[in-house]
Design a protein around this nucleic acid. Structure first.
Length: 468
RNA sequence: GGUGAGGUGGCAGAGCGGCUAUGCGUUCGCCUGCAAAGCGAAUCUAUAGGGGUUCGAAUCCCUUCCUCACCUCCA
């Protein structure tokens, strides 16, 4: 599989000789997550699902930043402990992302549980003369790391002249960044240099080095983390280990709204909670995967509505497959299906293997859906065909992280009873009665499909936004 | 100002030297008792502008214009 690497500015072959180790920069738990966070996490969740579907072992780690000025500010504003804030938003995180059908990472390390690792790392950096102690804290000396800027393609002298760098008298160089910040108020930890708390960047270096080693396969995050966060991580980690850090740097594009980046500071966010209630996980996932991961994607209700239309086709397809009658198929249909299944599988995998092209992969998937619906519409769908399709269909659905609404066995019995009753009324030309039953069934979330020879049903996911 | 990514039909979105995906939308039709869902057909004669290179360019080169992101915390 090839993935575009931000560092080398080229597609790079993913090393799958052993397991694929992935470190994803997670969220800072000080507020609700929004769909921008969701996109990045969904992309990596889908990547992980795809790799595993290919029989590749994946070790996937995603951190929580649970010590940070934003958390502290929030805690002060609400007059509670920082711990209370971070644990609240971690609980929320899992609630929301479980609902988004995001599989759990192998580990969710927290910054506060790795203070010792960070201190050790900083110690080595000081010993190696890459860091120094000042009156405010411990700083990384950017000028000592000669490759600084290699990820973000920034020149250090240009960075200095860029006026936005904070002037701080206690630093040797304006570009130097904090490894350890002295503090006398909570949250604080003891360190060889004095009580305080870690800087943001050192967290991810410490945790990724600890769990994935000094040279792992993929380090990911949103594009906005390239500078300074990932640049600084590289400086710290490579100065510490003397080795190259991540083999591939994979960055996910921003979610925009009206063409503008969605962010807390601009106040134009759509929270995961909100979009989940309104659109549901399947629509959100389809939306997030509808564009190439590296490009920005614009949040719009029209596009989400389009995703609903597609999702309805998938549901239709699924129930046509699952409820097909026994029977043997015409040889031409068998041939067509054999061919389509083979092609779809190939196209799907090829698209994802080529820099994780999810829009291309999903178009392959929708071609399969279309073919199934074509055959179903000509009343040729039988179990011998659907049995050929279902395994592939299910697998692709699973890779995309989509889930079809199911019905219980009891509901199934009830649905079939009602259908039989309705068909009897129809044969008696009691259409009023038949329509009443149809209404009753639709209240169960079931839509009827009248074919020539039989009546099929499908469970439709309830999507709040659809009727508004 | 610097750096990076882009500008493809009404919209979304692939393709990245020759065969112009795919989906949504719109219109009409089929199916139906009527619907719904689905299917079919039609429609849109798309590659930001201008130069080149080439037998041939959306795809390569030059140039102009425009958009976004990063350069401060940010997924």
């Amino acid at each position: 599989m090839k993935i575009f690497d931000t560092l080398s500015v080229a597609e790079k072959e993913l090393d799958i000789s052993d397991k694929v180790r992935i470190y994803l920069c997670g969220v800072t738990v000080y507020d609700d997550s929004h769909i921008g966070h969701a996109r990045t996490i969904i992309v990596f969740d889908t990547l992980r699902r795809f790799l595993e579907s290919q029989g590749i072992k994946v070790e996937f780690i995603q951190n929580f930043t649970d010590v940070d000025d934003k958390i502290i500010n929030r805690a002060r504003a609400e007059n509670v402990s920082t711990d209370k804030i971070s644990s609240k938003y971690i609980v929320n995180y899992f609630k929301e992302f479980d609902n988004l059908n995001v599989r759990h990472a192998d580990m969710y390390p927290k910054a506060t549980e790795h203070i010792g690792d960070m201190i050790n790392l900083i110690k080595v950096l000081i010993e190696k003369n890459f860091a120094y102690v000042s009156t405010n804290g411990v700083y990384f000396s950017v000028s000592k790391f000669h490759e600084y800027g290699k990820l973000s393609k920034k020149k250090t002298d240009e960075l200095v002249s860029g006026a936005r760098v904070e002037i701080d008298e206690t630093k040797n160089d304006p570009l130097d960044f904090t490894l350890w910040k002295f503090a006398n108020e909570e949250p604080k930890w003891e360190s060889p240099w004095g009580p305080g708390r870690p800087g943001w960047h050192i967290e991810c270096s410490a945790m990724s080095l600890k769990y994935l080693g000094s040279n792992f396969e993929i380090h990911g995050g949103g594009r906005d983390l390239i500078f300074p966060h990932h640049e600084n991580e590289i400086a710290q980690s490579e100065s510490y280990s003397g080795k190259n850090f991540a083999k591939i740097w994979m960055h996910v594009g921003m979610v925009t709204i009206n063409g503008e980046k969605m962010s807390k500071s601009l106040g134009n966010t759509k929270s995961v909670d909100h979009v989940l209630k309104k659109w549901g996980a399947n629509i959100i996932r389809l939306f997030c995967l509808s564009g190439h991961y590296s490009k920005p994607i614009d949040y719009s209700e029209d596009l989400l509505r389009e995703a609903i239309t597609k999702w309805r086709q998938v549901e239709n397809c699924y129930y046509e497959l699952v409820l097909s009658d026994d029977g043997s198929a015409a040889t031409e249909d068998v041939k067509l299906i054999e061919e389509t299944v083979k092609e779809t599988k190939k196209e799907f995998a090829e698209a994802l293997n080529s820099d994780f092209n999810t829009p291309l992969a999903s178009s392959a998937f929708f071609k399969l859906v279309k073919t199934v619906n074509q055959i179903a519409s000509s009343e040729h769908m039988v179990s011998s065909l659907s049995n050929m399709i279902l395994p592939v269909f299910d697998q692709m659905l699973d890779i995309l992280g989509l889930k079809i609404s199911q019905v219980s066995p009891e509901e199934k019995i009830k649905i079939n009873e009602l259908i039989n009753k309705r068909n009897l009324l129809r044969s008696q030309k009691n259409f009023q009665g038949a329509d009443n039953i149809r209404k009753e069934i639709s209240n169960l979330g079931i839509v009827l499909i009248d074919h020539k020879k039989k009546t099929l049903w499908m469970k439709q996911e309830r999507i709040v936004a659809e009727n508004s």
